[in-house]
Amino acid sequence: MQNLNVVDVQNVQKIYGKKNEKQYQALSNVTFNVKQGEFIAIMGASGSGKSTLLNILSTLDQPTAGSVKINEQDITSLNKNQMADFRGKEIGFIFQDFNLLENLTDRENIALPLSLQGVNSKKIDDAVDKIAKRLGISEILSKYPAEISGGQKQRVAAARALVHEPAILFADEPTGALDSSSAKELLDTMQDLNINDHVSVLMVTHDPFSASYASRILFIKDGQIGEELVRGTKTRAEFHHEIIDNLGTYAQ
């Protein structure tokens, strides 16, 4: 169980631009994997290819070469509808700007992934109540996104990302739009979900503090995975310092 790869990336390459146009290699030879129950952070400077990588992992974009397996399934061979279904079933998303539907109540937002899968309404209600309780947002389920704080919005988004129990949670700068205390709360929650509920997490971030919650950090530079830091038995604060030091040397 512990050795199962939720994400398995082999020699992924991404070239933007068609053959006859100006081409740009955004990713080259990216190889790594995420084990079940791991909390991985991907760090890198702006333009280093983080979003490109995340888009490929989440089937929103295709690699030019290489293979990507999520939960043992090769996602590059799927057709468009299969990809959409795959995203709906196996992947949970949290975005920097929440991406909640402001016309729907929080409850309706969270219920969406399950109703898309055709789960019956009783089960949906139970699942929504359970995840909301887990994330401490039971009180605000009948509110609209416009009526709650940024931190609460990101919790609702997390609830929506997790309600269907996906194989992995992808987070793209999840704390980017939050103040520091909301950011800390969210990260604590994510860590808690990771440790106690064994949710696998892959988070893209600039921020060393956010990254310090991870068990392993992959540094990406010019489209290539460079260094890797493992937290091991270090405390979070120690790990935080190590990341900052590393960034200092890595930037040179």
Partner: peptide, 12 residues
């Protein structure tokens, strides 16, 4: 009525 609401994209 969640039974009619939670049908695919209907709530949206």
């Amino acid at each position: 009525n969640h039974k009619t609401l939670y049908k695919g994209l209907r709530s949206f």
